[in-house]
Simulated assay, not measured.
Amino acid sequence: MTTTYAALLRGINVSGHKRIPMAGLRELLSGLGHGDVVTYLQSGNAVFTSAATDEDALAEGVRHAIEERFGFTVDVLVRDAAYLRAIADDCPFPAAALEAKQLHVTYFSRPVGPERLAALDPAAYLPEEFRLGDRALYLYAPHGLGRSKLAEALARPALFRGTVATSRNWNTVVKLVELTGG
């Protein structure tokens, strides 16, 4: 029996750095024995099937293969279709009523407790808001991510030290659910 997963690569193909062609990523994943490999956009989203059940081991395998093939390290998260569907379904914001640029999900490698965010005063960033989910953070930025003061505050390395984090806009969140059959 196989499971469908999405691999979320952090920080590739940004401003010409850490370039990974999507054809190369598909070849790499197929070479690792994964099936039904599809990539989405140039920003590090791949869907594949595998008989393996350990998401962390799958992520480590992809990370190691990228380092060997492309010569640099990339953080990788792997999540199954059911998890991706649950993240979309559990969105605390009215996703259907918002533009995709207004809503983002940051996926974490492990659970993040509210104590990590206790120093942030949510009222200081209104109308921007965030909510924690299952190894995820939902960010509502009504004027877009590029102008978001809250996104800037949440990007401070100390907040999530020791945790891999990678963000996707709502269009990508929904597309990954669709591609994984979640």
Rank of each mutant, 00 (worst) to 15 (best):
T4I: 09
Y5S: 02
Y5D: 03
L8R: 00
L9D: 03
G16P: 12
G16T: 12
G16F: 09
H17A: 11
H17V: 07
K18C: 09
R19A: 11
R19Y: 05
M22G: 09
M22I: 06
A23S: 14
L25N: 00
L25E: 00
L29R: 07
G35L: 07
D36V: 02
D36Y: 04
V37Y: 06
Q42T: 12
S43K: 07
S43V: 08
S43F: 05
G44A: 13
N45Q: 13
A46W: 03
V47P: 03
T49K: 05
A52G: 09
A52T: 06
T53V: 14
E55P: 10
A57C: 10
L58K: 04
A59R: 01
A59V: 12
G61C: 14
V62M: 06
A65Y: 11
I66W: 01
I66F: 03
R69M: 03
T73N: 09
V74S: 11
V76W: 01
L77V: 13
L77R: 07
R79D: 04
D80V: 09
D80P: 05
D80K: 12
A81V: 05
A82D: 12
R85L: 07
I87T: 15
A88T: 04
D89T: 12
D90K: 08
C91H: 08
F93A: 02
P94T: 03
A95W: 09
A96P: 00
A97L: 11
E99M: 07
E99F: 01
A100D: 15
K101W: 03
H104T: 07
Y107T: 00
F108D: 00
F108Y: 15
S109K: 02
R110D: 15
R110V: 14
P111F: 04
V112M: 15
G113M: 06
P114L: 05
A118C: 10
A118N: 13
A118R: 15
A119I: 10
L120P: 05
D121F: 02
P122C: 08
A123N: 11
Y125G: 02
Y125W: 07
L126W: 12
E128I: 06
E128G: 07
E129R: 15
F130G: 00
R131F: 02
L132Y: 11
A136M: 01
Y138M: 01
Y138A: 00
L139V: 00
L139R: 00
Y140G: 00
Y140C: 03
P142N: 13
G144C: 04
G144H: 04
G144F: 02
L145S: 10
L145N: 10
G146H: 08
G146D: 10
K149Y: 10
L150T: 01
L150V: 04
E152A: 14
E152D: 11
L154A: 04
L154E: 02
P157H: 11
P157N: 14
A158C: 01
A158F: 02
L159C: 08
R161D: 14
R161C: 03
G162H: 08
G162D: 10
T166D: 03
R168Q: 09
R168H: 11
R168E: 05
R168L: 05
R168M: 04
N169F: 05
N169W: 05
N171Y: 01
N171M: 01
V174H: 08
V174N: 10
K175H: 05
L176M: 14
V177Y: 12
E178K: 14
L179K: 15
T180D: 14
G181M: 11
G182T: 13
